[in-house]
């Protein structure tokens, strides 16, 4: 793993002829638009929705006045068992998907980590799923999961009435498996980077000591790949926590609420029931959770970078 060298120019270099803009103004000119633009597009709207989350207001009746309700919405949501159910469902989905991606992705990376012909092409082919649009993936997996003319049941030798997406207990598994298909390549990519960076001489030394495969794996491979695997875990946790597209086009949250993760619930609250105030509060609760996860992620990313 090559880590970039980080160098800074000292701002003033006496003796250099300079007729154009000063470094200071170039710096400001280059940075301020970006910061200002992001603030306008994200921070300002978020302040607006913070305001809304303390009010009762419906976006489809824009002419009616917003009524201040204090923390009522937050209290309602946190006291609503349906919210906790959605939350636990999302947690389950994230957990199963991330563990699955880790196992499959790391496993495939171990297999791929050897001399072979056309390794580059095969690796790229394996990476295709993660570059696709989650919405379109969800859509065409809906076809694959169909018990009759889909391909999943015949491949696994299941009968043509073994329903997936309309069965409350299996729908989540179908979603998780699709997610694993799509994102295990991501874990694989990171694992491969980690594996190929392990110095060969470590393995040679282990071989001379007649160390078992398991011993080598536990004491050489795993510790050296772990940092990258952790990045993969945190990243996938965060992304799956935000998941909307794939599940929305595949099951729409159904059957019942058995795959209704909180992004979908939020969408229905905000744009079908038009309960704008309450959904803003819901959004804020999610926002705080995401900020928590992403803090860990960015901290960790920086740490990796510094090594």
């Amino acid at each position: 793993m090559a880590v970039g060298v980080h160098k800074e120019a000292t701002n003033s270099q006496p003796g250099l002829a300079r007729t154009g803009l000063s470094d200071l103004s170039i710096r400001n000119l280059f940075i301020i638009p970006t910061i200002a633009f992001l603030a306008c597009m994200n921070i300002f709207p978020l302040i607006w929705s913070l305001f809304l989350s303390f009010h009762e207001w419906r976006a489809n009746l824009p002419d009616e006045k917003a009524v201040y309700v204090g923390i009522q919405h937050y209290r309602d949501i946190l006291n609503d068992p349906a919210f906790w159910q959605t939350f636990s469902l999302t947690a389950q989905y994230v957990l199963y998907a991330v563990v699955g991606e880790l196992v499959v992705g790391f496993g495939v990376a171990l297999l791929l980590n050897r001399e072979m012909k056309a390794k580059g092409v095969i690796t790229t082919l394996l990476l295709l799923p993660m570059m696709m649009s989650p919405a379109v993936v969800g859509l065409f997996w809906k076809l694959l999961w169909n018990p009759g003319w889909g391909i999943v049941n015949p491949i696994f030798g299941l009968a043509n009435d073994y329903a997936w997406l309309s069965d409350a207990n299996r729908a989540l598994w179908a979603v998780v498996i699709t997610d694993i298909w799509m994102w295990a390549p991501f874990v694989m990519l990171l694992s491969l980077a980690g594996l190929s960076a392990i110095p060969k001489h470590l393995y040679e030394a282990a071989e001379i000591d007649r160390a078992s495969w398991w011993f080598t794996f536990r004491n050489i491979t795993l510790p050296l790949v772990t940092p990258l695997l952790l990045i993969a875990i945190i990243f996938r946790t965060m992304e799956n926590f935000k998941q909307f597209d794939m599940i929305f086009t595949m099951t729409g949250g159904g059957p019942g609420t058995s795959t209704e993760v909180h992004s979908i619930r939020l969408y229905r609250m905000a744009f079908q029931s038009w309960d704008t105030g309450k959904s803003s509060a819901f959004a804020y609760i999610l926002l705080i959770m995401v900020i928590g996860i992403s803090m860990i992620y960015i901290k960790y990313l920086n740490k990796i970078k510094e090594r």
């Binding site: 309309s166 409350a168 159904g254 059957p255 019942g256 609420t257 058995s258 229905r268 079908q272 029931s273 038009w274 309960d275």
Partner: peptide, 20 residues
């Protein structure tokens, strides 16, 4: 009506399809 649809859709789907 849309607000009214949402609960009946959700609760009925829960009973009839999800069997809960």
């Amino acid at each position: 009506f849309a607000d009214l649809l949402e609960p009946i859709q959700r609760n009925m789907h829960q009973y009839i399809v999800a069997d809960q």
